[in-house]
Amino acid sequence: MNPNDSDASRFRSATADRRGERDLDDLLIHVARGDQVAFEALYDRMAGPVYGVIRRVLRDPSQSEEVAQEVLLEVWRTAARFDPAMGGAATWVTTIAHRRAIDRIRSTTAAADREHKTADVSPPHDEVAEAVEASLDRERVRRCLESLTEIQRESITLAYYGGHSYRQVAELLNVTLGAIKTRIRDGLIRMRDCLGVS
């Protein structure tokens, strides 16, 4: 990277910035070869985001812990299936985590349980606000979410953090399906540019 190019450094990939994405890829490659020490290091880096995103979606702490354990074990089991060409290790792991949380919502029993527990969900931007601490990630994501239009921001947070399908988001926000699809996509394009994802 050219240190004189302030734009380039400012727009460095969000994931590259994140405590060394390359290191994480390397760790995962070692994990794939059965290296438990590498897995411990990976755990220390990824357990927080994994548990955090699942917790955000499911809300229930004990269910979240259960799903997080399943996800981390799946990472261990399937590490050899990780393909760096398809995206970074952090993305691979968090994608599994988010999907498993969604799967859990969509399984019947969990759905009823969750309805009950999310009866008084605070609005999505409050969720984001409550997540804001000193963390750079949080700060940057918060800033970028703020740069969106309200409907883009709400669509994205309801879908990702709320674990709602875009049809449900359309229903919640009382907007047409076509509009929601577009808002989510436009919002993500803005987020991508704001976060400097390459």
Binding site: S13, P49, G52, V53, R55, G87, T91, T95
Partner: peptide, 27 residues
């Protein structure tokens, strides 16, 4: 792929410490 990176950043932004006993259980 690009959007998934955005989602990844959002996951990191949601980072929450898991219960401490989870580490031993996973290991």
């Amino acid at each position: 792929r690009g959007f998934r990176e955005v989602a990844t950043a959002m996951a990191f932004a949601a980072t929450t410490d898991p219960p401490t006993e989870m580490r031993d259980q996973v290991m």
